[in-house]
Design a protein around this nucleic acid. Structure first.
Length: 461
RNA sequence: GGUCCUAUCGUCUAGAGGCCCAGGACGUGGCCCUCUCAAGGCCGAAACACGGGUUCGAAUCCCGUUAGGACCGCCA
């Protein structure tokens, strides 16, 4: 029987979570859920200088906000913890120690200077830069005193072939890379080593990660083999690019989840936009559970894709339209009241982001503030005439509803002789303080007779 | 420099040798509707990187070229 699927998302807390990493997280999450397995969050904070706890918290907050819940992680706990690499240093040392005992790794006393010089020469000679194995056969008596060694993995010469979930069979020659460091002279585990030790010990069965790790994979497979373990299944997904075709990095603030949230994008929309980068689950908005049902590595694309803001906007518009008024009011931090509920439902179709929604609902949520531009427009004689006529008309009308909106506007038209923008804009401006928004008939109705009269009067007084 | 990956409309993609003079979605242009912004309706422009093979037949398979990218660290 196939063991329970275990996938992991392993960000380093050195910046904000961006759409590229979220896609990786999403696919790992979907794969785990699809196969009834566990999704694990592991924090790769071995880089003490760049790693910050606030970034770690931010990443978890973003993940939770998006609805990507992990089964095991730094806060959630789990049997295979700890889930922060900084708390697993002993594990790496032990693992490396075992490799050392078996002769699968050795201590290297080479200085940084020698290594740098070696690399320079090799590059100059046009050969691939790699360690020459100087300390491979160092005998006890040749060990220099007072030097803290690094530990290098003794790379066996062989061809490494593995089956990648999206790329198919991939093959590498281990002679292309020299004996690489697994524990630095600062006693900190190197990336490739820590990852393998963790994936092995955490029982990760399937690794889904970016294409940029393809060339790390043969090294990692060698490490798994050295530990006497069967490597997990690897799936490398193409990188996400920005509009200019450059890989999406941490510098792109606009592509950070935090940034998108602040811009007023909803989790469902972001998830849908991201899911379609290299995956085609068909048209239409999908929930996480639906995505889970549809997910298949076989449907993943081989070529890189670009994150498209316009697409996100389209999804967000759809998301807003399908979210009910009460939920939107809550999101906007507004009281869920009857009057506002109707306004929320009326207004949401006109909004792309929550920012828009907040702007559009403002006229119904409290007193309007009239900006200078609109104020001066309202001071024009024609505008005052229109407002004056509107006040009379509304005053005479009973309740305001869509049936008598036409009559009211018609009578204002008659009384003033104005039409088009000169007729409608003063009305919209005085009632909402805005020059665009939902249709006027709805505005009159939602505002109600009293508020309409009050707002007009404020200008005529 | 070496190894490896990738290549269909502006973008995301459908396409597993004939169903494709390439389909959909977002965006975009025009028209209708209209007080505005949207929404909605209708119509349109828009792509198989290039060159060679293989085949009766190629977007699809093979090779090369070009272009982009990743990796080659005591960074992750």
């Amino acid at each position: 029987m196939r063991p329970e699927a275990r996938t992991r998302f392993a960000p380093s807390p050195t910046g904000l979570l961006h759409v590229g990493s979220v896609r990786t997280a999403l696919f790992n999450y979907l794969f785990a859920k699809k196969n009834g397995g566990k999704f694990i969050l592991r924090i790769e904070d071995t880089d003490r200088i760049r790693s910050k706890r606030e970034f770690e918290n931010g990443i978890m907050e973003d993940l939770r906000w998006l609805g990507l819940r992990w089964d095991e992680g730094p806060d959630a706990g789990g049997e295979k913890g700890p889930y922060r690499q900084s708390e697993r240093i002993g594990i790496y040392t032990d693992t490396a120690g075992r490799l050392l005992e078996n002769g699968l790794a050795y201590r290297c006393y080479c200085t940084q200077e020698r290594l740098d010089a070696l690399k320079r020469e090799q590059l100059k000679a046009g050969s691939p830069p790699r360690y020459d194995g100087k300390c491979r056969t160092l005998s006890e008596k040749d060990v220099p005193a007072g030097v803290t060694p690094s530990i290098r993995f003794r790379v066996p010469e062989k061809r490494i072939t593995f089956d990648d979930g999206v790329h198919g069979t991939l093959s590498f020659d281990s002679r292309l890379f020299g004996d690489f460091v697994i524990i630095g002279s600062d006693c900190i585990a190197a990336y490739n080593f820590a990852v393998v030790a963790d994936d092995a010990l955490m029982g990760i069965t399937d690794i889904i990660r970016g294409d940029d790790h393809v060339s790390n994979t043969p090294r990692q497979i060698l490490l798994f083999e050295a530990m006497g373990l069967r490597p997990p299944a690897f799936t490398h997904i193409p990188l996400v690019l920005d509009r200019d075709g450059a890989p999406l990095g941490k510098r792109h603030a606009s592509a950070s989840i935090k940034g998108l949230r602040e811009e007023g994008f909803l989790p469902g929309a972001i998830l849908n936009a991201i899911a379609r980068l290299g995956w085609n689950p068909g048209e239409g908005r999908l929930g996480l559970d639906e995505m889970t049902g549809l997910f298949s590595v076989k449907r993943l694309s081989k070529s890189p894709s670009a994150f498209d803001m316009e697409r996100l906007k389209a999804f967000n518009k759809e998301e807003l339209a399908r979210t009910d008024g009460a939920a939107l009011l809550e999101l906007a931090g507004l009281p869920v009241e009857r009057g506002l509920l109707d306004a929320a439902s009326a207004v949401k179709r006109n909004a792309i982001t929550m920012k828009d929604f907040k702007t559009l609902i403002t006229p119904f949520a409290g007193d309007v503030e009239i900006s200078g531009d609109i104020r001066s427009m309202l001071m024009e004689p024609y505008a005052r005439k229109v407002l004056d006529a509107l006040r009379d008309s509304v005053f005479k009308a009973g309740l305001l509803d869509e049936m008598n909106y036409n009559e009211i506007i018609e009578s204002v038209k008659q009384a003033t002789g104005e039409k088009g923008k000169r007729l409608y804009l003063p009305v919209r401006g005085a009632l909402t303080g805005q020059t665009e928004g939902i249709e006027l008939a709805a505005i009159l109705k939602l505002l109600g007779r009293d508020r309409v009269l009050k707002r007009i009067s404020a200008f005529l007084a």
